[in-house]
């Protein structure tokens, strides 16, 4: 484990800055009353770690009060076989202050769902759909949670680590689709005869 690893059990930079550290960041006032942990990511980016219950409130506060008008990415990282397994990550950008911020939320396997932020940033809609497609993380209250890149009905989530390297092709789905279609045609033909 590297020294700047920000996983909860890693210790390191977890928790608020000790005395003598530089002044609190700009958004600290906007987030008063909310539960979160401030860390520094491995790449030096400010990172807020938050529990799932407080995720939506935190994101809303960041948008409304701290000027993060843009959500550039919603994705996840699969830390299998560690637990908790998924690190749901929101990347925010404030055009006004030229600042970027990462919000991370740990999700356990078998319980991988989180509140959707598509109501805050409409652009997060497809980002969350992709995240669902690739990791199988469900977003509660998402307006249209369908797969974005893979065919509907595909059974796997390819960016999970148990997904085989060589992949699983959805040709079975295709065959099924083809069969249904043909059955429909035949029925139509039979009806017109």
């Amino acid at each position: 484990m590297t020294s700047n690893d920000t996983r909860p059990e890693a210790g390191g930079a977890a928790g608020p800055q000790p005395d003598g550290a530089p002044a609190a960041p700009r958004w600290a006032a906007a987030l008063s009353g909310l539960e979160y942990k401030q860390l520094v990511g491995a790449d030096g980016m400010a990172t807020l770690e938050v529990a799932r219950e407080h995720l939506h409130a935190l994101l809303a506060a960041l948008k409304e009060r701290a000027g993060f008008a843009m959500c550039t990415l919603v994705t996840a990282v699969d830390h299998y076989p560690k637990a908790p397994r998924f690190a749901l990550t929101h990347q925010l950008l404030s055009l006004e202050h030229n600042e970027r911020l990462r919000v991370r939320c740990w999700l356990r396997e078998g319980d991988e769902h989180a509140p959707s932020c598509a109501d805050l940033w409409p652009g997060a809609n497809w980002s969350e759909r992709e995240c669902f497609d690739m990791f199988g993380i469900r977003f509660d209250a998402h307006p249209d949670l369908r797969r974005l890149l893979l065919p509907q009905g595909y059974d796997h989530h390819p960016l999970r680590k148990e997904f085989p390297h060589a992949g699983i092709e959805p040709d079975r789905l295709y065959r099924q689709w083809d069969k249904q279609r043909r059955a429909g045609w035949n029925a139509e033909e039979g009806a017109t005869r």
Binding site: P81, H156, K161, E162, P164, G167, I168, R172
Partner: peptide, 9 residues
């Protein structure tokens, strides 16, 4: 022990 739990179909 990460061998494939889902072999290719």
């Amino acid at each position: 022990g990460l061998s494939d739990p889902q072999p290719r179909k």
